[in-house]
Design a protein around this nucleic acid. Sequence first.
DNA 1: CCGGTTTAGCAAACCGGTTTAGTGGAAACG
DNA 2: CGTTTCCACTAAACCGGTTTGCTAAACCGG
Lengths: 358, 358
Amino acid sequence: MRQEARDRPRIADVAREAGVSKTAVSFAFNSPERLSPDTATRIRDVATSMGYRPHPVARMLTQGRTRTLGILTPQALSVVFANPFFATFSQGVAAVAEEAGYALLFVSPVHGSLARAVNRATVDGFVAIGLAQDHPEVEQIRRAGLPIVMVDSAAPFPEHPAVDVDDEGGARLAAEHLLALGHRDFLVIGVEPPAPGAQADSGGVVGRRLEAYREALAAAGIDLPDDHVVVGPASVEGGSACLAGAWEDGRRPTAILAMSDAMAIGAINAARRLGLRVPADLSVVGFDDIELSRHIEPPLTTVHQPVRRKGEEACRLLLSAIARDDSSRPDHRRLETRLIVRGSSGPAPIGKEVAGGR
Amino acid sequence: MRQEARDRPRIADVAREAGVSKTAVSFAFNSPERLSPDTATRIRDVATSMGYRPHPVARMLTQGRTRTLGILTPQALSVVFANPFFATFSQGVAAVAEEAGYALLFVSPVHGSLARAVNRATVDGFVAIGLAQDHPEVEQIRRAGLPIVMVDSAAPFPEHPAVDVDDEGGARLAAEHLLALGHRDFLVIGVEPPAPGAQADSGGVVGRRLEAYREALAAAGIDLPDDHVVVGPASVEGGSACLAGAWEDGRRPTAILAMSDAMAIGAINAARRLGLRVPADLSVVGFDDIELSRHIEPPLTTVHQPVRRKGEEACRLLLSAIARDDSSRPDHRRLETRLIVRGSSGPAPIGKEVAGGR
DNA sequence: CCGGTTTAGCAAACCGGTTTAGTGGAAACG
DNA sequence: CGTTTCCACTAAACCGGTTTGCTAAACCGG
């Protein structure tokens, strides 16, 4: 009994006022054909004049469904919304959800516990984004018994529908593109796990991309020593720091493979500060193809992944999992990536000595 | 009775299994001190072994609160998430909400009706962003009787808390900055209403900024004819189109006042295509100060508004409105804007003839 | 050993709707 | 005119929890 629910009229109040039963009021809203037309309108008139609206929670309880979809993120919303990638993904989910008349609830850890948040959540199902399968609470979440679609999870459970993209293929394309341009000296800029210890987010994604870079280079007879792989936070500043740090340590790559566009852009900025011209002295290839990438100078060569479509597909899978009574075997969908060549990559410089440096 | 709730055990099942009453089970979770320690643990053990979790909807119903906050947008989520501004705002709301243990429900029109969506929404209160006070359904929404904080509404209701920014001040600063640089020939690029007819979103904001531009220019004895104000969609492409179109029509401004950074960036791109150098031939000032603006070339001079803080403040006001039993007079908060001078603005060109054009 | 207080747990009422199973009366039918 | 069908509406059960009010047993001091 809290007063935030003010003194809003209940269905019984409307019934009394209109001189009918609760049932009649309910019918007036939900199945007017079971009432005589004029009683129905009269009841509705009384209801509106009293400012009545059916209590949505009570409704959910009786109907057994919420018409709400949950978006589950292992990180705090305040950090996840900083990621343009996430906004685009949400766009995709929202487009399909709205079409079907569902609202969207964003569910993030409550006091550090995702399972707690999941238990509180009044939804018909979840889209889990970047939830590693070895997340400590994932078992509890699955036991909640709600349909759940896993997006970008390292090794998704076969029993749940899943969506991801061909990270390996994209990474390979990026590496091969630079190899074809004659590059032999690479620096990989990777995304570090958000929290030390917790792998969360793109844990598996990072590993898959790195592995594919390595294989493509190996196929060309090039080894990628560990000190040619640096990681930092997935931000523009993080990318700058990665290149600056590696340069400081004596790395002199002619090409950079960045695992996120934001970091690639940071690397370009850092390169400029080091007196390097992009792409004449240094080629940079990103990953994701965020909106921003086509607007910077030079426009970023990058691996496109269909982020928005990822959201759409995930939401479709979820909706059909909710609708379906028999749980036929879940759909695992892998979307394609493709290389978009823009201005930040070019032929390897001829002389070994590049401009800039000290 | 839908099977999506599977055959999850109910509280009564747990009670039977543990050989106690429903009350005892409830106590075991919510007030264990009312039970002997070992019964409490025994009940909890049985519950976990059965995979029981209290039905969140039933819980909401009895407790009379949802621990969920609604973010209300008059536009579809799929379009609103395309706006980086919105993501930043959500970040602010989320930070405060998460801290207080609230989840976030995004509420957008259901089949075109915002009021319907509001009625479905199981929340303790709303943050309404860009909801014009003359929105046709706003009256119904207010009658829902839930606390509501209005953000960026043209003329907020005095009876609801509200947050906005000093648009007039910011616009004035932008105009005065360009005037001080010697500019006399202006083009204003504005945001067009998203849907024809519906003013929605930043309806009032656009008007307030335009008025302030006008006044500042008038104070310097400069008139701004209507055909020096063009509008388009609030996107990079929209900005390009605005400048390109105006140029086509014979406008030859030396300075552009854009009402959004995205449009300003578009204008810079268009200028480059017209052979104009920024800022040598054309100065551009944006509005909002989105992340992207500092990363483009040249970095954008723009009016900063504390978007994230806007979200934080709105959420704080909402939480206190929810907590407060007596409705003391609502808080109206106006946040400051400030001009950030970067590289896209410079002295007016000396000769009247500028490069490029035909 | 007795009256009073605590403790542990239960039955029933309640939250605010929807849905099922009727009910009484008028109309239709034979 | 008696029976059946249909119509318009209702009382009560239900959804799955929480909370109130109560009871029986254990405990306690004198």
